[in-house]
Amino acid sequence: KKEGHWDCSICLVRNEPTVSRCIACQNTKS
């Protein structure tokens, strides 16, 4: 897992550190 990346708590997609919403389901970063 790269530094700063985060996994969506709903759909588990891994997102870039620069985005505050999931690219797949638009869930906000927790």
Rank of each mutant, 00 (worst) to 15 (best):
V13Q: 07
V19S: 11
I23K: 14
K29V: 07
V13F: 07
K29R: 07
E16R: 02
L12V: 04
C11R: 10
T28G: 06
K29T: 15
E16C: 06
I23C: 14
K29E: 15
E16F: 00
S30A: 04
P17L: 06
P17K: 02
K2R: 11
C22N: 12
N15V: 00
E16K: 01
K29H: 08
A24H: 14
E16I: 02
A24N: 13
R14D: 07
Q26W: 05
V19P: 01
N15R: 01
C25D: 04
C25V: 05
S20Y: 03
R21I: 15
K29C: 12
C25M: 02
P17W: 01
T28N: 09
Q26A: 11
V13G: 14
V13P: 01
V13D: 03
V19E: 08
P17E: 08
V19D: 05
N27L: 07
Q26K: 12
E16H: 06
Q26E: 08
V13M: 09
S30T: 10
V19K: 08
C22H: 04
Q26L: 06
E16T: 02
V13Y: 03
S20C: 05
T18S: 13
V19R: 11
K29A: 11
K29G: 14
N27A: 09
S20R: 08
R21V: 09
I23F: 11
S20A: 13
R21G: 05
S20F: 12
Q26M: 07
P17F: 05
E3V: 01
S20V: 12
C22S: 02
E16W: 04
P17S: 06
V19H: 06
T28C: 05
C22T: 04
R14Q: 15
V19W: 06
Q26D: 13
S20N: 11
C22P: 03
I23Y: 08
N15P: 02
T28F: 08
R21Y: 14
W6K: 04
N27V: 03
N27E: 08
